[in-house]
Amino acid sequence: MKQTIRFKLNGDPIQIEVEPHLTLLEVLRNELELTGTKEGCGMGECGACTVLINGRAVNSCLFPIMETDGKNVITIEGLADVDGNLHPIQRSFIENGAVQCGFCTSGMILSAKALLDENPKPTEEEIRTAISGNLCRCTGYLQIIEAIKEVNKNS
């Protein structure tokens, strides 16, 4: 039986009816049509489905939708500002050649955001740890690490 849940999605309060056995990833992609969040493994291994819940990076493929009730969820669609200007992390990824096919990118950027919000000038080791749950099959990690390092370089 469908149940009603309320949560904040990219800053806006929403209320939806959901089947309780679904994951947050399934609801985001199939019901809310926010397809920026990707499904890779569906098992918590690859990080393509990473979103922020109350500011923390989480694999949405393992996150029961019912646990979203009352939470604050940020997906890649919530990063650009209202005028469509990209977030500094997104810009840095582009400028540093950290995107090839883009399948890992949403998750990488959200893992980077969780890190930088907590620790604006992380060491390379801290960056590596923060993205250890995000697999990239094409760009290579060096450009991604570089892009994350560059975000707050001049601030």
Partner: peptide, 9 residues
Amino acid sequence: LGSVQVRNV
């Protein structure tokens, strides 16, 4: 244990 995403939950 696992990754940051796993450890967070």
